[in-house]
Each structure stands twice: as C-alpha cells, then as structure tokens.
Design a protein around this nucleic acid. Sequence first.
DNA 1: CGTTATGTGTACCGACCTGTTTGGTTAACG
DNA 2: CGTTAACCAAACAGGTCGGTACACATAACG
Lengths: 202, 202
Amino acid sequence: MEKGPQGRRRGRGARERILGAAQRLFREQGINRTGMDQLCAAAQVSKHTVYQHFAGKDELVAEYLRRFDPDVLPGVFDRTDRTPRERLLAAFEVPASTPLCPYIGAAVELHDPHHPASECARDYKKAIAARLAETAREAGATDPEQLGEQLALLIDGASARTRVLDSDCFPAAAAIAAVLIDNAIPASSAQPGDDRGIAIAQ
Amino acid sequence: MEKGPQGRRRGRGARERILGAAQRLFREQGINRTGMDQLCAAAQVSKHTVYQHFAGKDELVAEYLRRFDPDVLPGVFDRTDRTPRERLLAAFEVPASTPLCPYIGAAVELHDPHHPASECARDYKKAIAARLAETAREAGATDPEQLGEQLALLIDGASARTRVLDSDCFPAAAAIAAVLIDNAIPASSAQPGDDRGIAIAQ
DNA sequence: CGTTATGTGTACCGACCTGTTTGGTTAACG
DNA sequence: CGTTAACCAAACAGGTCGGTACACATAACG
C-alpha cells in the first residue's frame, strides 16, 4: 500500500490509468512485448482491477485502439484556416520519430484478421481514407475517393518504411502527395502563386 | 536423401529443411507466433539439430530473411524483353493475397532496430530502392534516386495496407507509380502509343 | 455509523517459450 | 570392417505469459 501521510491511494480512476499506460507501453514496445504485469506496474493498478475492467488482454488492446478515434489526426481536417490542399498535405506533417502507426502494428503483431483489434484497425483505416476523400472533394479533385485512398496508402507506406529504415520517410511521401493532388485537381482549381512542393520535395 | 523403402530417415539435409519450414511458417503465422517446437515438427528435425545449425532463434530469423536476397523480386529487374518503364511497374504485379513483406513483418515483430534481422531488413530495403533507382535511370528519369525511393515507398505502403485492410492494395499503388514515373521522365522519353495506366488505374 | 463498490498485494495456476541435456541410432567413408 | 559425424526422440530447465483466487483496505454514500 505504501500510503500513509499524503494518502497516495491510487483512487477511482483505474480504468483511465490502465488505458493511459496501455497507450504508452503498446506504442513504445509493441503489444506482444508488453506483459500484463508490466502494464499493471506502469498503471499503478493491481492485476485484479485490470481484469475487472477488461475481459482480457485482447479486449484491452481493442479498446486501446478505439481510443485513437476521437483525436483522428488532430489539427488536420478541422483547420478552417487552411485550404483543402494544405489540409491534405498537413496529414504528412508528423513530428519526426513518431512511432509506427498503432493500427499497422496491431494488425501485424496480432496476425489475426478476425481479432477485434484488427477489425477496429480496418474501420479506422477506412475512416481516414474517407475523411481524406472528403477533403479531396472540397479541394475539387475529379475523383476524390481515389485520391483519398491514394493518400492513405502513402501515409501507411511512410509509416511502415520509417519503421523499417529507422529514418523519417514522411517528407518523401509528402512530395508524392503533392504530385498526386495537383494531378487530380483540374488546372483551374490551382491557386495563383501556389508554392506547390517547395520545401517538401525530399 | 529420404531414402529407403519407407524412408523414415530424414537424411542429411537438415539445414535446408529447417530454413524451408522457417520460410513457410514465419510468413504464414509470423515470427513470434511460431515456436521452435512447431518449427522442428514441420521441418521433421529434432530440436537438437536446429540448435546445432543455428545459435538461436534470432540467428535463424536473420538467416531466413537473408534467404530472400538471391531472388529479389524475381522477373522484375532482369527481364530484358520489357522496357524500363514496364519493369518498374512490374514490381507492383504481385499475386493477389501475397503475405506481408517479411522485412516489414520482422521489423515490426522484433521491434528492435539493432536485431540482426532488423539490420538485414534495412539493407534489403535499401537494395530494392537502389535497384529501382537503377532502372529509373535506364528509363530516363531526371532524378532516378528520388523515383526509386518513391516507388519503394509505394510498395511498402501497398504491402502494409493490404495487411491491415485485408484487401489487395497493389493496383492502387501501381496507379500512383504510373503517375510518378511519367511525371519523372521528360516528355521526350515517352514511347508513342504508350498505354499508360490502362487496366491499372483502380 | 454501516454497507457496498472499488481497489490492493501476493501467491498461484497451467500453458507455452527458448534452449539444454542425455542416450541411442543411422548414414557415410576410409 | 570400424570410426565418425550427423541425426533423432524425449525429457528437462528456467522463464514468461495470460489469467485467477484470496484476504484485506479504502472511498463514497446511505
């Protein structure tokens, strides 16, 4: 317990602490390499409590992935001060040394397409592509769905390749994205003085 | 070997059988989910023999990855009956439901950039990009290194995304590749009657 | 106050993992 | 033939895994 003077009772927010620790540990070291004991220690929670909140590790993993939904690419789609084209390109402005996309990681590590977390990953990926397509439509793309799918593929490629090569691949992906976007939007839509590609081409 | 009437003797080729079983099992179910016992059974080899040929599982995994080198994208780079442009696009003609690129899988599963297999994966990815760049140079690209890196990124993206979505993403990647290639090659190099993109655009 | 959730710590279970050891068998070769 | 190197089967060792059981402590609320 080690409580005493300044009552360090962990309190009622066990579930939140569990999910917080899960987010940190799963992203840092992967899912399979993170044991429940370690997770309990990091969350300052007893094992009993974890299994009281989650049916098992699989459930916890699925919930950990669902938690990403609310903050889907924060500041990318909802920035009204940027043009649609700028918003599309903003999806590639990830801080350097961002860990592998957790959905790709889960799909690879769990290796079961029917795992609840894998299904969650599919849903998320489709949602991202849909939002990209939506923005692509705003930008005036002739085939928004195709452009959205293409940009989503670029993001996944940059994420996976960054992991394998251990060096940031998002600038290269952004350069491709710029080409695709300009190729998909009829010339009339291009803003005058558009600085397309500057400082992005790798 | 497997001689004799009811040839129960597995023979001398133990190492090859081990690597063969490793290739099949690691690709089918992943590295972490494949135990040494299962691998021994599949290779019809005793555990003792495995550890006589390989210092440990890590060594075996690394050797399993090195085995891919000789047949790097067979029939892609060495087909002289195709134009350079066709060879570049051929890299995206993978049979449907091809499992995840083993190098990406290893890098994600092992999760340690210093693991011998991870270093092997990096080397391989760089080699592929280099060969693509080489072919891009033949095709007359203005910046072959950039195009090679871009195409490599597309391949990785298609592989990873195919895994997550559980549906073939290589056609979409090929469509992007066609755009990038044509964008990177000065107009003069384009062959007359070039059927660019036909039957590839998703 | 007493009750009821909710939490704690610890020990434990069976399963599986990588890796080792033992003792015996078989094939190949001089 | 005899020697040797490769192999096999099976038990074992030590560790970690996900998950459970038990007895106890605390917080919130009536």
